[in-house]
Design a protein around this nucleic acid. Structure first.
Length: 536
DNA sequence: TTGTGTTTTATTGCCTCC
DNA sequence: GGAGGCAATAAAACACAA
């Protein structure tokens, strides 16, 4: 064969192949392509800040995510639809519950009375300014911005109402949904609009809705969260609570044995309210539900934290020996600090997600192995939030189990240290923890699917096998950890850092002092229910 | 492995607002 | 009339059970 001819044929072959590839890629482009995890994360992040991005935002987002504006628009559109659909479903579900319970709830409950006097379940989180107007909520003294941002702050309350019926699936689904919105239920607190004298705080405005402006009130809100938590503790302590006692959330004197054994609700409230005369005025702590609402919030709050921590322990350290555990944990802390330092960008996803995107070399790598990527998407991100169950109490039990198991591995000094460290984080890092959990924005569907899968996978093989499913488990784990921690640090990096430091500081055994972190056990659902029922 | 159900993405048409 | 949003629909991708 003539060399030039063969060359020509080769070139022809090449061009043929290229055109084939072009065709393929064209066809591939014609097909729908799944968004990469980074893209999804960024989109969800952005969506949580702004459900109606402007053209500018869209184009910017499109540039960053290497998507078209059309895709961005479409995604937002569908995302809104999805929200709406879920909202409708849950309104139906919860509406029945709420009617059946006959409880008239205050604003914090997520139920409002419309102008006709009928009680509607209002998801503040999902109220658009337009909707707010139509709901006539201005009459209540909030602005649209208040609601728009403030409705975030009522997921607690929704949660509250949902947890009234602990056996209902909608409760968990609502929680899921509340979380899945990516907004941390604890990045605010139940009465974030309520000052101690019961007046409404000025809203945190729609600044959060602006591109590149994350909700700016994390630090502020964190304090309010603690307030709610501390309030719950105070109420539990009742008359034994002392203003001049040790700092809450740091350490307690030994809790009086009767603190959780008898009905203390009235007495406790009396004592506490005596010291805090403003509280009874708070609509948040209404006469009907003040005990249960706080408790349940706190309860679910800890439940979630427990689930996170347990999952963290399980996922990252669970299979390690104690020494490894501590080593890993310290590494974890270091990572957190590192991420905190790197997390100063007000637009988190630009750091976390897009770095992630870059790490994954964009779509190319993400789609190299679609199936694995998909799994990574599901399990990787979901693994971050580790929301594996619909039953919150399971989380807590699980967590207890982990703690106890870990404790059982350690003795004496180490034992109490670890306990302190671990449990200390429950309380001290709760805002961060909570953010960590819920800042991963996924939807109930995904969540549901994941829950199923996770449950199943855990059932069979435990975490290790789950990780094996990743194409590159280390990569995914690092990503999830980084993102987790990034989110963690995002809320209250200083707090987080302090927590870690103080956790180490707490290595001094304090046998005579009950760590505040041990308090969660006092807020189990059962006891909460008891307390609330006794209050009734 | 295959069938089925679910979720996600893309497209299209209609409506509302400016 | 154009832009943006909503709703319906189709289809691909995926999960899961048999």
């Amino acid at each position: 064969m003539h060399p030039s001819f063969s060359m020509l044929s080769l070139q022809l072959k090449v061009t043929e192949l290229q055109s084939e590839e072009n065709k393929l890629s064209m066809e591939k482009n014609k097909k729908r392509r799944l968004k990469t995890p980074a893209q999804l994360k960024a989109l969800e992040d952005f969506y949580n800040d702004n459900k109606y991005p402007t053209e500018e935002m869209k184009s910017e987002l499109a540039d960053e995510l290497e998507l078209t504006e059309k895709q961005i628009s479409g995604w937002f559109c569908h995302r809104r639809l999805k929200d709406k659909k879920m909202l409708n479903d849950e309104v139906c579900a919860n509406g029945r519950q709420d009617r059946s319970s006959g409880v008239i709830q205050d604003r914090g409950s997520g139920l409002v009375q419309d102008s006709c006097g009928s009680t509607k379940h209002v998801h503040y989180r999902y109220l658009d300014p337009k909707e707010v107007e139509s709901h006539g909520l201005y009459n209540h003294g909030f602005s649209a911005a208040d609601i728009t941002y403030g409705h975030k702050n009522h997921r607690y309350a929704e949660n509250d109402s949902a947890t009234d019926n602990t056996s209902s699936e909608s409760s968990s689904s609502l929680q899921d949904r509340l979380l899945c919105q990516g907004q941390d239920p604890y990045d605010m607190e139940p009465s974030s609009h309520v000052t101690p004298n019961g007046s409404l705080l000025p809203p945190n405005t729609k600044g959060a809705n602006n591109m590149g402006h994350k909700p700016s009130g994390y630090l502020k809100v964190k304090g309010e969260i603690e307030h709610a938590a501390i309030t719950a503790v105070k109420k539990q302590l009742g008359k034994h609570y002392r203003e001049d006692g040790p700092l809450l959330s740091v350490e307690f004197d030994t809790i009086p044995p009767e603190a959780f054994e008898c009905q203390i609700a009235d007495l406790a409230n009396e004592a506490y309210y005596a010291a805090n005369p403003a509280l009874p005025n708070s609509p948040e702590v209404s006469a009907v539900k003040k005990q249960s609402s706080l408790s349940s919030r706190y309860d679910s709050y800890f439940t979630k934290i427990s689930s996170q921590d347990s999952q963290m322990v399980r996922g990252d350290f669970g299979s390690l020996h104690d020494s490894d555990f501590q080593y890993k944990k310290s590494h974890h802390d270091i990572n957190q600090r590192r991420n905190f330092q790197s997390f100063t960008n007000p637009l988190p996803h630009k750091n976390s997600c897009l770095d992630f995107n870059a790490d994954s070399t964009g779509e190319a790598s993400a789609y190299n192995n679609t199936k694995n990527c998909r799994k990574g998407t599901k399990h990787g991100f979901d693994g971050t939030r580790y929301d594996s169950g619909s039953n919150p109490s399971d989380h807590y039990e699980e967590n207890n189990l982990v703690v106890n198991q870990t404790d059982s591995l350690l003795h004496g000094y180490e034992n109490s240290n670890l306990k302190n460290v671990q449990r200390g984080e429950y309380v001290k890092s709760k805002p961060s923890n909570s953010v960590h959990k819920s800042q991963v924005y996924l939807d109930t569907g995904e969540r549901r699917g994941l829950n199923k899968r996770m449950a199943k996978e855990e059932k069979f093989d435990g975490d290790r096998k789950i990780k094996k499913q990743y194409r590159d488990p280390d990569e995914v784990r690092v990503l999830t950890n980084e993102m987790t921690v990034a989110k963690w640090a995002k809320v209250d990096p200083l707090e987080q850092y302090d927590v870690k430091q103080s956790s180490v500081a707490e290595l001094e055994p304090r046998k005579s002092q009950r760590s505040a972190a041990e308090m969660p056990s006092s807020f189990s659902e059962d006891e909460t229910a008891e307390t609330s029922s006794s209050a009734d």
